[in-house]
């Protein structure tokens, strides 16, 4: 039940981002200034935090997709589906931590620069 709901919600969220992403990539046709303005948005603090939600959603949706296929094609899939959901959540967390580290790390630089500037 939870896995079904999460799969659906994360899928819809990823699709929404995909639409945004196709539009922001299409800015390439307008040259470097316009395109980099778009990238600037993804560099902002709020969008970095939002992209953590995206990364978590993608990982959960991907691993749970494998679980769904195991339920469909593996004869013991249904018997182990609950245990496999535990594995899915564990794998998601394990893969999420290093990716989140790289996404969030530059924020500390931004905050540090802002902090130094506010003191001077």
């Amino acid at each position: 039940m939870w896995s079904w709901l999460l799969h659906r919600v994360t899928g819809l969220g990823i699709l929404l981002f995909l639409f945004i992403h196709i539009v922001d990539i299409s800015l390439l046709g307008f040259g470097p200034q316009v395109y980099n303005e778009g990238i600037l948005l993804f560099d902002s603090i709020i969008v970095r935090i939002l992209s953590l939600a995206l990364i978590g959603s993608v990982l959960l949706h991907a691993f749970n997709g494998v679980r769904i296929m195991l339920i469909d094609f593996w004869s013991k899939g249904t018997r182990y589906q609950r245990m496999m959901f535990g594995i899915v959540v564990t794998l998601t967390i394990i893969a999420f931590i290093p990716l989140a580290y790289y996404v969030i790390l530059p924020l500390f630089t931004v905050v540090a620069i802002w902090f130094i500037h506010s003191k001077t």
Binding site: P32, N36, I39, S51, G65, L99, Y102, V103
Partner: peptide
């Protein structure tokens, strides 16, 4: 599954978003 994970690692871990410029 393969394409997206490669894409995620290239765009968010190997390179920072601020360097995925034109």
């Amino acid at each position: 599954l393969v394409l997206v994970i490669v894409h995620l690692v290239i765009m968010h871990a190997a390179n920072d978003v601020s360097c995925t410029t034109y």
